[in-house]
Amino acid sequence: MSSNKNALIRYKTLDKCLKNKYRKYTLEDLIDECSEALFEFEGKESFVSKRTVQLDLQNMRSEKFGYEAPIEVYERKYYRYSDPDYSIHNISVNESDLKAMNNAVQILKQFKDFSMFKDMNGVIQKLEDSIHSTNQKSIIHLDKNEQLKGLEHIDILYESVLNKKVLKILYKSFKARESNHYIVHPQLLKEYNNRWFLICWHKGKIMNLALDRMEEIVTEEQTEYIDKDFDADRYFGEVIGATVSETQRPQNVIFCITPKHAPYVKTKPFHHSQEILKEDENGTVFKICVQLNFELERLILGMGECITVLKPDKLKKRIYKSLTEAVQNYSEDNDS
């Protein structure tokens, strides 16, 4: 059991003893009660030291955790609350605390219709009721789209990652003519640009499967799960988006942003590797070190006339080709 959970069990036990009006507790009694409580939770002997309980009492008395418990020692031997109505579970909150809690509730409400957060609905309602925030409009809005195809798969995929379950997924990529079955070992759920992906292990390599291309999911109970101890920060560290190549090395991508739009790219970098190479009246030249992928191209094309790719030539030619074809879509011959 974690040390934090141990401490919470001890605090709860001490609180129960200190507010008990019908029994006198010595320090040794409190030690025994804490040891017994931990034994009940862990199912094994758990000796709590005298110093640990003394520190717990000291923490409960202090402002460290917001308790400021009125713990007193009477007859130089017994411990109790000087206020018989006090409990660490009845801590009052000030107006500032209520505002902070209300802001947190408003953020949680953004997710309450999202399938994987459905079990939170009751908790959110209780929080709203307890801080009287039901009539306050939200002042924080998060971008989400519950109508995205594939969100119905979130629950089973989330549970499979959490509980280490192998899945059989019927999947049809945008390029495939027919659907195919994949036996996969789910490692992570990844969201990028309002689309969700399952990062999984399949036949000796990491795969990226879009949720909106999944047609059927079945749990493979008889197959042993392979846990790759997946490090998401490392895996996605050299890309923009969710598409990672196992063979491609990251390249220096150099681009120029017009003076008017450079501040936006400075304050919201394309990638964590971004740095400024030059800045003058013609614009700001940036450099990032990433793999060349579809998401990078979409990001650049989304900047329109505000960006010019300088290097590498391969990416520069791709962007030029895409823009040329886009211009043709607006030529007079295509007017309807």
Rank of each mutant, 00 (worst) to 15 (best):
I240H: 01
E281M: 02
A176I: 01
P186E: 06
L209R: 02
E281C: 00
D15H: 11
M120A: 14
Y86K: 10
Q147A: 08
E33H: 10
T219Y: 15
Y330C: 01
N121H: 05
I169T: 06
V290Q: 04
N329Y: 15
K64I: 12
S322A: 11
H272E: 04
E28S: 11
K278D: 08
D85E: 14
K314H: 04
A232R: 05
L162R: 11
I240P: 00
R10H: 05
Q58E: 08
V265F: 03
Q110A: 07
N121S: 11
H153N: 07
M303E: 08
E305P: 02
L188I: 01
I226S: 11
N102Q: 11
H271K: 05
G304H: 07
A242K: 03
Y225F: 15
L277H: 04
L167A: 09
K287C: 13
I124N: 04
T247H: 14
E146I: 13
K164F: 10
C17E: 01
S179R: 13
K137Y: 09
K24D: 10
L310A: 04
P186Y: 13
M120I: 01
G122R: 12
L292E: 13
S133A: 15
H202R: 05
I183V: 10
Q58D: 05
I156F: 11
S62A: 09
D85Y: 14
A262Y: 01
V290F: 08
G241H: 09
V218D: 09
S115L: 07
V244E: 05
L209E: 02
Y225K: 01
K144A: 06
D119H: 15
N6M: 10
K149D: 11
K16C: 00
H132D: 14
R234W: 05
K149G: 07
S87P: 00
D113S: 12
L188N: 09
F286V: 03
M120F: 15
S82Y: 09
R234M: 05
A232F: 09
I183H: 14
E63P: 00
S133R: 12
Q328C: 01
S133D: 14
L148Q: 13
K44C: 02
I226A: 12
E36R: 03
D280K: 02
T52Q: 10
I9T: 13
Q58C: 00
T284E: 00
D119N: 14
V93H: 13
P250D: 03
F114N: 08
F47R: 07
T243E: 12
R195F: 14
G66C: 12
S62L: 06
M1N: 04
K165S: 07
I31R: 11
M101W: 09
I9P: 09
T324W: 07
G204F: 10
S160I: 05
T308L: 06
T219F: 14
Y330I: 01
E297S: 07
K311A: 15
K260T: 03
E332A: 14
L157N: 08
K205E: 13
L108M: 15
L292S: 07
D15G: 08
